[in-house]
C-alpha cells in the first residue's frame, strides 16, 4: 500500500544481446523495485548481468522485453528529450571505468553536470568542492585526471555522480580501485545521501563488506534474481552479552 510510486521499477525485464549463435541472454525476467531513500546492492558472479541491469535501470539501454519505470513513469512512453533530461538531472552514474573528461580538472569534472543544468559557474564550483571535500579530495580539486591515482579518479567520479541532489545514483563497482578505508568512505557517503537527501542508490559490487552498507542486497545469477536479504529487526541483537562458560 504505497502512497507514492517507487523511484525505480523494473517489470519483467529481459535483455538479449546478439542473434542466432551469438545470442546472449544477459537478463531473464528481472523484476526489481527501489524506493526513495533506499540503497540497494547487487551482487553476483562475473557475467551474471549486473552491469546490464544497471544500464537498463539507468535508461542508457532499452530492455528486449519488459518495462522500466522511473518515478512511476514508463520510459517507453517518454519522449527522447524527457529521457535526456532525466539522465542529466535525476540520475548520477559511476561506471566500471569511471570516464572523467581528461581536459578538465577534478573540480571541473564534478561541476560540469551542474552547469549543464543551468547552475551558475560559481555555485557549481562551490558544490563541487564540497563534494570533493566529503571524499577526502580537498587537495586534489585542481588536478587533471592523469595527475590522480586510480582510487582518486574513482572518488572524483563518485563526487560527480552524487553532486546536486540527484534522485538516483547508479554505481558499478564504485570502489574497485579503493582500499578498504576509502571504499568504506564511499559507501558511507552514498548511504548517508540516501537517508539524508532522499536519494536512491543501486550499487553493483562483488565485495560483501561494501554491499553490507546497503539496506537490501539482491543476488543475481545467470541473468536472474535468485535471492535477496531480509532486513534485520535491529542490529542491537548482536551486542547482547552472552557470558562465556
Amino acid at each position: 500500500m504505497r502512497n507514492h510510486p517507487p523511484l525505480v521499477e523494473l517489470r519483467a525485464v529481459s535483455k538479449t544481446y546478439g542473434q542466432g549463435h551469438a545470442e546472449v541472454h544477459a537478463l531473464h525476467d528481472v523484476s526489481l523495485v527501489a524506493d526513495t531513500g533506499e540503497m540497494v546492492a547487487v551482487m553476483g558472479p562475473s557475467g551474471s548481468g549486473k552491469s546490464t541491469l544497471l544500464t537498463i535501470a539507468g535508461t542508457l539501454e532499452d530492455p528486449t522485453s519488459g518495462q522500466v519505470l522511473i518515478g512511476g513513469q514508463s520510459l517507453a512512453s517518454m519522449p527522447r528529450s524527457a529521457k535526456a533530461r532525466l539522465r542529466r538531472q535525476t540520475i548520477g552514474y559511476v561506471f566500471q571505468d569511471f570516464n572523467l573528461l581528461p581536459g578538465l580538472t577534478a573540480a571541473e569534472n564534478v561541476s560540469l553536470p551542474l552547469e549543464l543544468d543551468g547552475m551558475s559557474a560559481r555555485k557549481a564550483r562551490v558544490a563541487a568542492l564540497r563534494a570533493l571535500d566529503g571524499l577526502g579530495l580537498e587537495n586534489r580539486a585542481g588536478h587533471f585526471p592523469d595527475q590522480l591515482s586510480g582510487g582518486e579518479r574513482q572518488r572524483v567520479a563518485i563526487a560527480r555522480a552524487t553532486v546536486g541532489q540527484r534522485k538516483l545514483v547508479l554505481a558499478d563497482e564504485p570502489s574497485g580501485a579503493l582500499d578498504s578505508v576509502n571504499g568504506e568512505a564511499v559507501m558511507r557517503l552514498l548511504h548517508s545521501a540516501c537517508k539524508n537527501n532522499a536519494m536512491t542508490a543501486i550499487v553493483v559490487t562483488h565485495d560483501a563488506q561494501l554491499a553490507s552498507w546497503a539496506d537490501r542486497i539482491i543476488f543475481i545469477r545467470d541473468g536472474r534474481i535468485t535471492d535477496q536479504t531480509i532486513p534485520a529487526v535491529g542490529p542491537e541483537s548482536l551486542l547482547t552479552v552472552e557470558p562465556e562458560k
Partner: peptide
C-alpha cells in the same frame, strides 16, 4: 551466503 551477508549488514549498521 545470504545469512552471512545479513549478519554483515547488521555489523555495518553498528
Amino acid at each position: 551466503r545470504r545469512y552471512l551477508v545479513e549478519l554483515m549488514q547488521q555489523w555495518t549498521r553498528i
